[in-house]
Design a protein around this nucleic acid. Structure first.
Length: 401
DNA sequence: AAGCAGAGGTAAGGTCTC
DNA sequence: CCAAGAGACCTTACCTCT
């Protein structure tokens, strides 16, 4: 989807069309960012103010980063993952709006169901991206897939008012690269025979899976383009990047990828983390940290219960003021979704980590997930507890171990 | 009894993606 | 001086069991 989060907001506020709009920032709601009607009687005609015009700008954008920027905003050099303060400097006239996750999810479901009605074999790749297998869709091969891609684009636009970019290729690897070629609202077809002319001149960073680290390492080894990568001896790559990554790099440089489009998958872990408004000291801010810690545990527990999962590996993550991170985890004998159990186990993990520096982030994770129904079945319990046999007693009546 | 290989689990850190 | 949140997966090390 093109500039997905921003495009969703433009549907609601069409008066922002063409303006530099940036989504992201701190914990503000849209009401904080909208100038209300002058008499204060309500949001009659919302007026948007450029980010630079906010007094106490830092309080508004906090320590947040950009999630999405409209194409008008990208002209100013702002883009995803950039710190909000830096973005405000680069583009003072930008309109900054917070993410409306509920609305984003609604449109995510909408565009995905539009696709599966046409082409049922679809793999989720986050809120705004999917892989689609055209192989068995009637007409999926016409004009190399262009006809079907156009149909999908039009159907999504008719249903949502949103545009997307589609790449069609013999496999997922090349399709992903192709989807970047004609943004926004474009279609690109890549054939196997295009490898040399179209793919090999590109930088290795265009390969999905080669990030900043591998890109830098390859550059230091004198490998910049995908063609140069393809020319390397697989053994040499394996020597530098390990057996599996090295072999993979050679394969993808030759455009080879036989990974299937996976339509269903189970979650492996669930987590909650938060960056504090200011760095906190483990001793001096103990009470505040404790509240945040407990809240994170309760939210993970709630997520697990809502989705019907239990997990036995409880972990914590923290980030120090120097941005270094540490993780600790502990595996319980039996999986859980209970907030008090998670809180207690995570507390033990916290004791194993150095707390001499100030902290900027704290996170709680539950991994090794199994579906609650499967766990109950294998534990020999009835799959559905009857009324009155709550699995989660009132936490106030339960000691924290 | 000692030694070793392979499988599988746990833990810590890191990379990458959207 | 600035750097989110959520999740998947990889590597390495170490341990236990067979």
């Amino acid at each position: 989807m093109d500039a997905f989060f921003a495009s969703v907001e433009l549907l609601r506020y069409p008066q922002l069309k063409g303006l530099p709009v940036v989504i992201g920032g701190g914990r503000r709601t849209v009401d904080d960012l909208l100038l209300q009607s002058p008499d204060g009687s309500g949001p009659r005609e919302p007026r948007f103010i450029p980010v630079a015009d906010f007094p106490l700008l830092k309080d508004y954008v906090g320590r947040g980063v950009i999630t999405t920027a409209t194409y008008a905003a990208r002209q100013f050099g702002v883009g995803s993952a950039m710190g909000m303060m830096k973005a405000a400097r680069l583009c003072p006239q930008a309109i900054v709006l917070p993410v409306d996750f509920d609305e984003v999810r609604r449109f995510s479901r909408l565009f995905k169901s539009t696709i599966t009605e046409i082409a049922p074999v679809m793999q989720d790749r986050g809120v705004d991206e999917v892989y689609i297998d055209f192989t068995d869709v009637p007409g999926g091969q016409r004009e190399g897939g262009r006809v079907l891609a156009r149909l999908i684009q039009k159907s999504i636009f008719d249903r949502t008012g949103l545009t997307c970019s589609i790449g069609v290729a013999p496999n997922r690897l090349l399709a992903k690269m192709a989807s970047e070629f004609n943004k926004p609202n474009g279609i690109s077809i890549v054939y196997e025979s295009d490898l040399q002319a179209t793919i090999w001149p590109l930088n290795v960073r265009k390969i999905n899976g080669i990030g900043p680290k591998a890109g830098e390492k390859l550059a230091a080894l004198g490998v910049h383009t995908i063609g140069e990568l393809a020319a390397q001896d697989p053994q040499w790559l394996m020597g530098h990047f390990g057996k599996s990554t090295g072999a993979w790099m050679h394969r993808v440089a030759w455009g080879r990828d036989d990974s299937p489009v996976v339509t269903e998958s189970e979650p492996v872990s669930m987590s909650r983390e938060t960056t504090f408004e200011r760095d906190l000291h483990a001793v001096r801010d103990k009470a505040e940290l404790g509240r945040i810690f407990t809240d994170l545990c309760q939210r993970v527990a709630q997520d697990l219960q809502r989705k019907g999962y239990v997990g036995k590996t409880i972990g914590i993550k923290l980030r120090y003021d120097d941005f270094k991170t540490a993780t600790r985890d502990h595996t319980l004998p039996a999986p859980t979704d209970d907030a008090a159990t998670i809180r207690h186990t995570a507390g033990l993990c916290l004791k194993r980590v150095p707390l001499d520096r100030r902290l900027r982030l704290l996170g709680v994770r539950v991994g090794a997930l199994v579906r609650l129904s499967d766990h109950l079945a294998s534990a020999g319990e009835p799959p559905c507890a009857g009324p009155g046999t709550a699995r989660h007693p009132d936490p106030h009546t339960v000691p924290l171990f």
